[in-house]
Design a protein around this nucleic acid. Sequence first.
RNA 1: GGCCUCAUCGUCUAGCGGCUAGGACGCCAGGUUUUCAUCCUGGUAACAGGGGUUCGAUUCCCCUUGAGGCUACCA
Length: 518
Amino acid sequence: MNKTRVRFAPSPTGFVHIGSLRTALYDYLYARHTGGDFVLKIEDTDQKRFVEGAVENLIKSLGWCGLGWDEGVFQTAEIKDDKIPVYVSKNYKNIFEAGEYGPYIQSEKLEIYKKYAEQLVADGHAYYCFCGPERLEELRNQQAADKKPPMYDRYCLRNISPEEVNEKLKENCPYVIRLKIPENETIEFEDMVRGIVKFDTNLVDDQVLMKSDGFPTYHLANVIDDYDMKITHVIRGEEWLSSTPKHLLLYRYFGWEAPKFAHLPLLLNLDRSKLSKRQGDVAVEDYIKKGYLKEAIINFVALLGWNPGSGETQEIFTLDELVDKFDFSHVHKGGAVFDIKKLDWINSQWIKKISLDDLYQRAKEFFEQKDFYTNASEDKKTEEYMKKVLTVERERLQKLSEVGEGNGFFFTDIDYDKELLRWKGLEDEKIRESLDASGKIMENITHENWTRENLEKNLMAAAEKYSNADGKPDRGRLLWPLRAALTGEKKSPSPFEAAWVLGKDKSLKRIKDALEKI
RNA sequence: GGCCUCAUCGUCUAGCGGCUAGGACGCCAGGUUUUCAUCCUGGUAACAGGGGUUCGAUUCCCCUUGAGGCUACCA
């Protein structure tokens, strides 16, 4: 059997839609699972939608997610296999293309598309059409009024002779080339996720293949590219399902074997409409900015429409595990609602899972966005100190953007009302005793032994000795004032954790400050 | 409107003729606990409706309903 070759074919609209990412992920998973190739090509046939920097952005977002491709469009010239030809893109600055089946950018193969389109005309499977937008508009309105499906009426096919066509072409009349859909035929194919799907050709419109600006439409370019690039499996969103018969016809007319198709279910808003900007963030970079880890985004999006199958209760997957388990038999048919609550949970799981070193590297930029951090003294910005903070915070974090939230006391001086120190209405004197006791214990712990374990062991031993009127243990009598003194917050990590991060000197200083306060 | 697709807890889903319909998120309750969070335990909640086929349907078929996609010289 031939090697599997799949491709991700985004159009550069400025950002990577989270739904596109899911498609790219399934492309990647299928390619890797089958030991095939993964190709990145660019669909930029719509000049009106061109966005500056979109290609670079796309490569960046995809790369950030860790989905590597073997062939196609790249930002740098470092391609692992030096047998593959690498060249600079004709139309984009700082973009390289690598592979023997290029160009991988549609705007760079206009001549090729044109040639194929003309061949189709010569073979009688397509025809020139000179109808302007006004007539088309009128036609559609009439058809709507007659309650008929809006379709091109083949005016140019029926009324313009080949001689007239040549005449008009010579006069440089604007034209498009339309596919001549056969009548009374049923086009049938087997979709990898949906099974057999059938279409009646009488209901399929004569699709424009070449636009009057000389660019091909998606339909033409796509089929030619996939043939040129030897693509074996076309994995794309469900929105393409109804245009598949056009593509199949094209393969037939060119005499090419059609690839296998897999139409993926759509990603949905909470109200079950197609996932859109209006109801939340849809760009991958939005999620990056919010502090979601790539592992979490991949993990989450993989589960939106696919599952590992029977009996499997695992929820957290690495990319490699996904590659190992992925197959189309477990891809869902129905759309999936993008529920951010589950993403949050998966993200929190990943924050706990990655190494501290890794977490530190990734969290740094989020700290740098916070005032309490930028204004903090240098000794608070050391790797050692930050890692301590993160050790404590990672149990509580849902997203990296929340880093340091409510924990500013690790970085800045604190100020709080003295009442915060009070445990269950205890009088000042008792609070002072409590703080004093904590201070003494901590003073006896050396800098070398200043660990969470030691702090907890020694402080807890003392805390256990307190009990309330009922004889029940009342650890809070020691621990609450201490925690309040160290953090100045109503809610915070434990006093052991806080003291450990702050260090012996700072901790003792804060206890002293508290003592003066009360 | 036409064509296509889809349909299990609120959400993501397991299920591929016989199950007390399972798991996860969320939510609620309890436990651990000095607060917050983590963690642990338990609970809540679903086969859209109607016909068939079958000894037996969540599962297979049909209809209805609902949802989504497409219906461009956009992808």
